[in-house]
């Protein structure tokens, strides 16, 4: 089978997200970059599906040239092919992103045949637009379900499981199908040294992204109101235990 997984390069901030002076971007001067966690799991799932059912996996991203790093990371844990849709900025609006990814997929499929499964993250970690995967699936006339935490392939169909407030919902989809994956579907592996070396050698295909501006345009980033709190120190080490238990009683937690 053939599996495609779409990932986005995002900064990996620590204790606080700082914004550049012009208010237009996250200040990444001192930050590393990563793949959104949901998508990291989607990559792992793609590799596992191929390990189980045979075939070939491809990773695709639309992003700056540096997003090569995220493609090679996916390759280092076992994805076979990589495609970059290079853009001049950190991101495009969601409609434009979806249009570009759709047309790239159509091009790849015209040349190499259809993907049985296309995996997205449930939402990107930074923008969280909750829509790129759905738009692509609709444009390709394929079924999509989001929030997936389990995939079981059975012949030409698959069962996809997701959690809701009420419990677990199961969907049965005919392939070709598209799924939005959530972290927790699996435990992503770490790359081996051999995997890392191999990923340096793979050829990253390039597709010129096609898409017109969408109706949602970012103007600036705004820091959310910081919660300031005067921390009350209860003490140091195990000697603080009585003070903690006093607090538990005071808060009514220990009755």
């Amino acid at each position: 089978m053939k599996v495609l997984v779409c990932v986005k390069r995002v900064p990996a901030p620590g204790a606080r997200i700082n914004i550049t002076a012009d208010g237009l971007a996250v200040d990444t001067a001192y930050l590393a970059f990563t793949t959104s966690p949901h998508e990291e799991c989607a990559v792992e799932e793609a590799v596992q599906l191929i390990e189980r059912h045979g075939g070939e996996s491809t990773v695709l991203t639309l992003g700056p040239a540096e997003a090569d790093e995220q493609l090679r990371y996916a390759a280092s844990i076992g994805v076979n092919k990589a495609v970059l849709l290079p853009i001049d900025s950190a991101e495009w609006d969601p409609q434009r992103t979806a249009a570009a990814i759709t047309s790239a997929i159509q091009g790849i499929e015209a040349a190499d045949g259809p993907f049985d499964v296309i995996l997205f993250g449930n939402e990107s970690a930074d923008a969280g637009n909750f829509q790129v995967g759905v738009r692509v699936a609709y444009a390709l006339a394929r079924p999509i379900v989001n929030g997936i935490k389990g995939i079981e392939i059975d012949g030409d169909s698959l069962k996809a499981r997701r959690e809701s407030d009420a419990g677990v919902e199961v969907y049965a989809l005919r392939m070709p199908a598209v799924l939005g994956v959530k972290e927790g579907i699996n435990l992503p592996r770490y790359p081996t040294l051999k995997g890392r070396l191999g990923s340096k050698k793979i050829e990253v295909g390039q597709v010129v992204p096609q898409g017109v501006l969408g109706g949602q345009q970012m103007v600036s980033l705004v820091q959310s109101a910081e919660q300031v709190s005067q921390t009350i120190m209860l003490g140091n080490g195990p000697e603080a235990a009585p003070a903690v238990v006093d607090l538990l009683e005071e808060l009514g937690i220990l009755k």
Binding site: I19, A125, G128, G215, Q216, M218, L221, V222, S224
Partner: peptide, 18 residues
């Protein structure tokens, strides 16, 4: 003119919608 949540609530975004 819209303000929306980014980064799961760690950051806000001002955007326009036409």
């Amino acid at each position: 003119d819209i303000t929306r949540v980014r980064w799961g609530g760690s950051l806000l975004e001002a955007c326009t919608l036409s």
